[in-house]
Amino acid sequence: MSANDKKSLPFRYQFFSGAIAGVSEILVMYPLDVVKTRVQLQVGKGESGEAYSGMLDCLKKIIRNEGASRLYRGITAPILMEAPKRATKFAANDEWGKVYRSAFGVSSMSQPLSILTGATAGATESFVVVPFELVKIRLQDKNSGSQYKSPFDCAVKIIKNEGPLALYNGLEATLWRHILWNAGYFGVIFKIRSLLPNAADVPGGQTTNDLIAGSIGGTAGTILNTPSDVIKSRIQNTVRIEGVAQKYNWTWPSVITVAREEGVGALYKGFVPKVLRLGPGGGILLVVFTACMDFFRSIQ
């Protein structure tokens, strides 16, 4: 039986496996997410006059000027987020797959169906992650991070100063980010798995195949969704003030604004740390998720 057609398990097993996979990935890859956010938020030389010329320069300056622990600043929010986020991603992907197979009258997945299922799972996932993402962005930003004592303090101050709905600032951009990433991720995984040797024929084949497929899928998803991720970061880092028009509101008009003012390349700010995280990170996610699901199948 191929990895694409393995027996489905009840929702609780998918959810728990996704949660374990998500926490595993964030513990390994989080510093790259901090670097990515800093580079994405930078406009010109920034308020302080300190510019990051790239990923390594940003990494060195954070460690030198703020200390290595800053690379894990705001990790509590992602840790709390990763369990429900990744759990929702994989569980929703499997459940939506069942819905679409039934709707289209087919018994197994295809690549177009994997893309559609992934996109729908990404939309579902977005509603879970937006408040956590907003808190994470505010804590990671050099200028605003010092205003908050903890993720909880950050959330309380956002609600107090900007209103409860402010926790969902950037929802539309987050929808685009997750729809595009998940469509690319799951669609490419399906295709790559079909091209790789049968996992049963090679020692450690399942882990190797999942690492390759997940890493390539993560890279493809990152290429597709980075512009919407840049916009999401800027929207969520903007404090909403009543009566003041916001520069960044909707994704595609904001994409045009950034491209016009900073050049098309600015839409891929933070791409290197992002792809270094979500490429291998996508592999880690798939390896851990598959291993957990296989374990649960073995005890059924």
Rank of each mutant, 00 (worst) to 15 (best):
L80A: 15
P131L: 04
E82H: 08
G74N: 11
G46E: 07
A83L: 09
G22N: 05
N4Y: 03
V130K: 01
N93K: 13
A213P: 01
F127T: 05
V239G: 09
E25I: 03
F190Y: 14
L56P: 05
S254L: 11
T37F: 08
W252I: 14
P112M: 12
Y168S: 08
S228W: 05
I158T: 02
G265I: 04
L175F: 14
L80T: 15
S126A: 15
S215G: 03
G118A: 11
V43G: 00
G214D: 11
K89D: 01
L167A: 09
A213R: 08
T222N: 02
L175P: 14
I115T: 06
D210S: 11
G18D: 07
A166S: 15
L165A: 12
G217W: 03
S144V: 11
Y248F: 14
G270M: 06
T257V: 07
V239W: 08
S110C: 08
K7L: 10
L276Y: 14
L113I: 14
M293G: 00
D229E: 06
G145E: 09
P31T: 13
A183C: 11
A87F: 00
G97Q: 04
G49T: 02
Q40W: 14
S102H: 10
P131W: 01
L9E: 04
G170N: 02
